[in-house]
């Protein structure tokens, strides 16, 4: 009996200290007293994970290869044909390239108005459904990465940087249950909020703020963006609407969208370290093809 009471007291104490930690961390936000602790954790474990990932990568790749084997043969045939075609195309393009470069210099717009992106490799991943979804990237403050920077890949928006160490950084995915991204329906331009749907990155929850706007299956959602592109730059494709919930009488409409980026199997991503030189304040939607059409 005494042992039970002791156990209860211990658990109560521990739970209380967990709550205190949470409160302190949440309330003090940016300059949390626990920040240095977390920074040290990122620095130490980041290095360990970087080493671990280089060991684990071949093994993971082996399992991926086994899983993909039946399709691989067909794919090889396909790629061979495509390679042949591309080789011809490349020969033709090499001729055009020199002329194009000269024209570009002439126009003088090359470096202006573009995003500067640092490529990164995913070295660790944590997904506890309904709790969090985050990945560790192998770039850090030495590469110019800072907290609240946009993370994307060739297909679409991936997430944002939340914690930066010297050579690694942590990114929260847009499918994380507590993340929310300002988004815009392409076409009508209506705004809404994208949140994780807790499906391990397979689905996103999209809340359209105007219930009168028609929303249909197949419509694209792009990021809304904010001042100086923090934390999400504007116009990055997020996903395509897959299912619209019927919410009669409510002030908002709810849809579920499939993300463009394959959030379940992330490998190479990019961190936007610099938004365009020009303040994108008045450009509500960036011109198609700049960054938004890269799908």
């Amino acid at each position: 009996m005494k042992d039970t009471r002791q156990a209860r007291a211990t658990v109560g104490l521990l739970l209380a200290s967990a709550l205190v930690l949470m409160t302190v961390d949440h309330r003090s936000g940016e300059n949390s007293p626990l920040g240095p602790l977390r920074g040290a954790g990122t620095a130490v474990f980041g290095a360990v994970e970087q080493a671990g990932a280089s060991v684990a990568r071949p093994v993971v790749r082996f399992f991926e290869a086994v899983a993909a084997a039946p399709e691989a043969q067909r794919r090889i045939e396909e790629l061979r044909g495509e390679n042949e075609r591309l080789r011809y195309a490349l020969a033709a393009q090499a001729l055009d390239h020199r002329r194009s470069a000269e024209l570009h210099r002439l126009l003088g717009t090359a470096g202006l108005g573009g995003y500067e992106v640092v490529p990164a490799q995913v070295i660790a991943r944590r997904n506890v459904p309904g709790f969090e979804e985050a990945v560790e990237l192998d770039v850090g403050s030495a590469d110019g990465v800072r907290p609240e920077m946009t993370v994307l890949n060739g297909d679409g928006l991936v997430g944002r940087v939340v914690q930066v160490g010297p050579s690694t950084s942590t990114a929260a995915l847009i499918s994380a249950p507590a993340s929310s991204v300002g988004a815009r329906l392409e076409g009508s331009g209506e705004i809404g909020v994208v949140r994780g749907a807790g499906e391990n990155g397979r689905l996103l929850h999209f809340r359209l703020l105007d219930s009168a706007t028609p929303i249909t299956r197949g419509q694209r959602i792009v990021s809304f963006g904010s001042q100086r592109g923090v934390p999400y730059v504007a116009g990055v494709p997020i996903g395509v609407v897959e299912r619209v919930e019927a919410t009669p009488g409510e002030l908002t409409r709810i849809a579920y969208a499939r993300p463009y980026a394959d959030l379940t199997a992330l490998n190479v991503v990019g961190v936007v370290v610099r938004p365009p030189a020009r303040n994108p304040r008045d450009a509500v939607l960036p011109p198609a093809g700049q960054n938004g059409a890269g799908r």
Partner: peptide, 17 residues
């Protein structure tokens, strides 16, 4: 503390405790 962590300190401690 372990790097890919995007939640507040103490939450996972509460769960496992």
């Amino acid at each position: 503390l372990l790097p890919p962590a995007a939640h507040e300190m103490g939450q996972y401690a509460l769960v496992l405790c």
